[in-house]
Nucleic acid binder design. Sequence first.
DNA 1: GACTTGACTAGAC
DNA 2: AGTCTAGCCAAGT
Length: 108
Amino acid sequence: MTRTAVYAIVRRVPRGKVVTYGQVAALAGTPRAARAVGQAMRRCPGGVPWHRVVNSQGRVSRRRHAEGMVSQRLLLEGEGIRFVRGRIDLRRYRWRVGFRPDLLPELE
DNA sequence: GACTTGACTAGAC
DNA sequence: AGTCTAGCCAAGT
């Protein structure tokens, strides 16, 4: 998995949707590289919707230097994503690739 | 090539 | 619901 691959994936996330670090890693073909995805996002080039990447709890991950940077939360709210008690409902906002309701197993 | 450093995570208390 | 821990992976030294 390369940084470039990460950016290519994140660029495809549409407005109003989010993905998790682990999810990006899986899409890149390296399921356990969530942490490396974070590394890639740290040096994110322009043109990449970095704010649409959140952690597995639906929260905005804390950075080492949180000063002088735009609020990820504000950007997401600007796209219509609602935060409830500092969290995002991933069941609702997670971007799914090739989601096929007709192929889901029976529930209950 | 051997450390070190994280925008990570799932599991275990 | 918090707090720890042990894995993990790519980059930077």
